[in-house]
Design a protein around this nucleic acid. Structure first.
Length: 668
DNA sequence: GTGAATAGCT
C-alpha cells in the first residue's frame, strides 16, 4: 500500500475516487475496488453532512472498514478543510487508516496533529488509536514512547499496548503489561480483551505454567465460561510452554463450543501431524457438533490433515465440499487444496486448484512451486516461479527454499547455482541453512562432492544434520568413503541417536567391500543402543488407511498378501528382476530373521493394493523412509507387468512409476 | 483492546 500524504490536503482532489495516483499500476484488488467506486463515491457524498463532525468521522471509519485506507485518509483531509471540529472524532479512524495502509509517514503526521491539538495524550480514543497505528507500522518502540507519555492509561489503552507488543513479537513485555494490570488491583481491568491478549502471548512463549496461571485467574474472575477466552486458551495450552495438546483436548471436552472451538482443536491436531485425530474430530463436528457448520477455516485445517496423512480420497471429498461452498477462490482454502493435492501425489490437480485462487499470495505461489518440486518437475516449478515474479510478488526466504529444492530434486545444477547466487545478489536474501542444504544436496548428487564440502566449510551459517546427511547420501552415490567418514563424524556429533546415518555409512563400507568396517559399525550400533525406527508403508483404500511394517503379520489379510507377493516376485524374476543386495543392510538389525521378513514394507503395500484396488486405478503408497534402490527397481517392473500406475511418496519426494519408468529418472 | 486457517532443506 502506498504511503499517503494527508497534509496539506489537496483542495482539488478531496474525495476517495481521485485520491490515488492514476499512473500507479493497478492490482487486481485495486481494479475490483475501482469497479465499485462510482457508487461508493455517491454514497459518500450523500452520507456526509459536512457541518456535522461525527458524519465525517463515520465516513472515514467506513472507508477504513471497507478496505480503502487511502481513501479514508483523503476523506479525513477533506473533513479538516471543511470543518476543523471534525478532528476530534475523525482522528482515531484516520489513525486506523494509517495503520491499515501501514503508512508510517501518514501516521507521524497524524501524531503531530494530535500533539498540536492537545488530543494526545489527553483523549483516550486518540491515544489507543495512536498506539495501534505505531504497532501496525511495526514501530513498537515508538508505541512504547507514546505509551509512556500517557499519564493514566485506562485499561483499553493498556490492553491495546499489550496487544501491539504481541503483534510485534514482544511477547514478554506483553505479559509484563498484563501482570501489571493484574497487580494494579483496579477491579475490572482484566476483562475479556485483556485475557485474550494475555493468552495469545502465552501461546508464543516456551515457559511452562503461564497458560495454567492465566487459566486460574480467568476462572477466578468468572471469564472461564467465555467461549472466546476458552478458544484462545486451547491454542495457548497446545502452542505455549509444554505444548500440551492433551490439556487443550481436556478443556475442549469440557467447555461450551462454537465453530471457532472446533476449528481450533482440528487445526491443532492437523498442525501437530495427528491427521487421524483431526479428521475424526471433523466428522464428530458434523455429526454431533450441535449444529455447528464448517467454514473456510475448518476446511483449510482439514485439508492440512489430508495433506500430511496423504489421504487423497478424503482430500478429494473435502475438495468437493470446498467447491460446493464456493470457496475455491479463497486464498487460504485454495492454497490448502493445492498443498493437499501436491502432497497426495496429484500435482496436476494442484495446478488446476491453483488457477482457481483469486488473489494468490506468496504462500499460494510457494506451495505450487514446492508442489512441482517435490514431484521432480523442476522446469514447471521454475516456470511458476517466473510467473510469480512477473505478477509483481517478491519471493521470500521460503520461496527460495522451494525453488532450490525443486532444482535439487530435478538435478537442475546450473539453474540451482543461478538462483542461489541471485537470491543474495538480486533479492538481498542471505541464504540460510535450508538453502545451503539444498545446494549441498544438488552439488553432491551431481558429483561435485568437493564443491559441496567446500560450500559447507565456507558458508556463514552453522551446518545442520540435514546438510551433512545430504553430503553423506551423495558420498554413497559417488562411492567416496573418505568424505563419507568426515560427514558421518559430524553427524554423530550432531545427532548420535539417528540410526539412518549409521546404516548409510555401513552401506557405503559394504559397497566398497570394507567388511571390517561394516562389522565395526554393527558393533557400534549395538553398543550405543541405536534403534532403527521401523520402516512402514501405507495405502489408502476406500478412505481407510492400511499400514504395513517390515515383516508385518498383523494385517488380517497377511497370508493372502504374502502368497500374492511370492507369485508376483516369480513373475518379476522372469521379467529380469534381480534382487539388489546393496540395500540389504537397511535391515541390519533384522539379520537373524527369516529372509521373507526382510521384505520391505512397500512391497507388502503394493501387493495389498494390487489385490484390492479397482483394476486400472492409480495406486498411492506412502513410505516413512526413503525408497531403496531395490524397491525402486521392483516398482518399475511391476508397472510393466501389471499395466498399473504407482505413485510413491517417500520421506522426501514423489516417484511416479509408469510403464517401467519413474518420474525421477532414477535421480533421487 | 479480543479468538480459529495456507508455503520450506535430510
Amino acid at each position: 500500500m502506498a504511503a499517503a500524504s494527508i497534509m496539506p490536503p489537496n483542495a482539488r482532489q478531496p474525495l476517495p475516487a481521485t485520491a490515488r495516483n492514476p499512473n500507479a499500476p493497478a492490482s487486481d484488488s485495486q481494479r475490483q475496488r475501482d469497479a465499485t467506486l462510482p457508487s461508493l463515491h455517491s454514497l459518500f457524498l450523500r452520507a456526509v453532512n459536512p457541518s456535522r463532525p461525527s458524519s465525517w468521522s463515520a465516513a472515514v471509519a467506513d472507508l477504513v472498514s471497507s478496505g480503502d485506507p487511502v481513501a479514508a485518509l483523503a476523506a479525513f483531509a477533506a473533513a479538516l478543510r471543511v470543518n476543523p471540529a471534525a478532528l476530534r472524532p475523525a482522528l482515531p479512524p484516520a489513525l486506523r487508516a494509517a495503520a491499515a495502509a501501514a503508512s508510517l509517514a501518514a501516521g507521524r503526521q497524524l501524531h503531530l496533529l494530535a500533539l498540536r491539538s492537545g488530543l494526545f495524550p489527553s483523549d483516550a480514543y486518540s491515544a489507543s488509536a495512536l498506539l495501534h497505528m505505531y504497532h501496525h507500522c511495526s514501530r513498537p518502540l515508538d508505541a512504547r514512547r507514546a505509551f509512556d507519555e500517557i499519564p493514566a492509561p485506562n485499561p483499553v489503552i493498556v490492553t491495546a499496548m499489550a496487544s501491539g507488543c504481541v503483534r510485534n513479537n514482544f511477547v514478554y513485555p506483553a505479559l509484563a503489561i498484563f501482570r501489571s494490570m493484574v497487580a494494579s488491583d483496579c477491579a475490572g481491568a482484566v476483562d475479556e480483551a485483556a485475557a485474550l491478549v494475555a493468552l495469545s502471548a502465552s501461546a508464543r512463549v516456551p515457559d511452562r505454567g503461564i497458560t495454567g496461571g492465566i487459566h486460574a485467574l480467568v476462572t477466578k474472575i468468572g471469564l472461564d465460561g467465555n467461549v472466546g477466552v476458552a478458544n484462545t486458551m486451547l491454542d495457548a495450552y497446545a502452542k505455549g510452554g509444554g505444548s500440551d495438546l492433551g490439556a487443550a483436548r481436556k478443556l475442549f471436552d469440557m467447555m461450551e463450543r462454537n465453530v471457532v472451538s472446533w476449528n481450533t482443536m482440528i487445526a491443532l491436531y492437523a498442525q501437530n501431524g495427528l491427521s487421524a485425530e483431526a479428521l475424526g474430530l471433523y466428522s464428530e463436528m458434523l455429526n454431533v457438533g450441535g449444529g455447528v457448520r464448517c467454514n473456510a477455516v475448518t476446511l483449510s485445517a482439514v485439508l492440512l490433515a489430508c495433506a500430511h496423512g496423504g489421504k487423497i480420497q478424503t482430500g478429494k471429498r473435502i475438495h468437493n465440499q470446498v467447491v460446493r461452498m464456493g470457496l475455491e477462490d479463497n486464498v487460504y482454502v485454495g492454497t490448502a487444496v493445492v498443498d493437499m493435492y501436491s502432497k497426495c501425489g496429484k500435482v496436476e490437480m494442484a495446478w488446476k486448484a491453483f488457477q482457481k485462487i483469486k488473489e494468490k499470495n506468496i504462500l499460494s505461489w510457494t506451495a505450487m512451486i514446492a508442489g512441482y518440486g517435490m514431484h521432480g518437475y523442476g522446469q514447471e516449478a521454475l516456470e511458476v516461479f517466473s510467473e510469480m515474479r512477473m505478477s509483481g510478488l517478491k519471493p521470500n526466504y521460503i520461496t527460495f527454499i522451494s525453488v532450490l529444492a525443486a532444482c535439487s530434486h530435478a538435478g537442475l545444477l546450473n539453474e540451482g547455482r543461478y538462483w542461489y547466487d541471485s537470491m543474495k545478489n538480486e533479492f538481498g536474501i542471505e541464504p540460510g541453512v535450508e538453502h545451503n542444504g539444498c545446494m549441498v544436496d544438488l552439488l553432491g548428487r551431481a558429483g561435485c562432492l568437493d564443491e559441496a564440502y567446500g560450500l559447507i566449510k565456507e558458508m556463514k551459517v552453522k551446518p545442520d544434520a540435514a546438510m551433512w546427511g545430504a553430503l553423506l547420501s551423495a558420498c554413497r552415490i559417488h562411492k567416496n568413503v573418505e568424505l563419507a567418514e568426515i560427514s558421518a563424524k559430524r553427524l554423530f556429533e550432531l545427532d548420535a541417536t539417528n540410526s539412518g546415518y549409521y546404516v548409510l555409512l555401513s552401506n557405503i563400507y559394504a559397497e566398497a567391500g570394507m567388511w571390517k568396517d561394516v562389522e565395526r559399525m554393527r558393533v557400534l550400533i549395538k553398543t550405543r543402543g541405536i534403534e532403527k525406527p521401523p520402516g512402514y508403508s501405507s495405502v489408502e483404500l476406500k478412505g481407510q488407511t492400511h499400514l504395513f511394517y517390515v515383516g508385518d503379520k498383523s494385517h488380517p489379510q497377511h497370508k493372502e498378501i504374502y502368497a500374492y507377493l511370492e507369485k508376483l516376485l516369480d513373475r518379476m524374476r522372469e521379467a529380469g528382476y534381480v534382487p539388489n543386495t546393496s540395500s540389504v543392510l537397511h535391515d541390519l538389525d533384522e539379520e537373524e530373521k527369516e529372509s521373507i521378513l526382510r521384505i520391505h514394507s512397500e512391497k507388502f503395500a503394493i501387493a495389498f493394493a494390487l489385490m484390492n484396488s479397482v483394476e486400472g486405478s492409480v495406486i498411492h503408497i506412502i513410505k516413512n523412509l526413503r525408497i531403496c534402490t531395490d524397491c525402486h527397481r521392483a516398482m518399475k517392473i511391476i508397472t510393466t507387468l501389471t499395466g498399473r500406475e504407482i505413485i510413491v511418496r517417500d520421506m522426501q519426494r514423489f516417484h511416479h512409476f509408469k510403464a517401467g519408468l519413474c518420474s525421477c529418472r532414477d535421480y533421487w
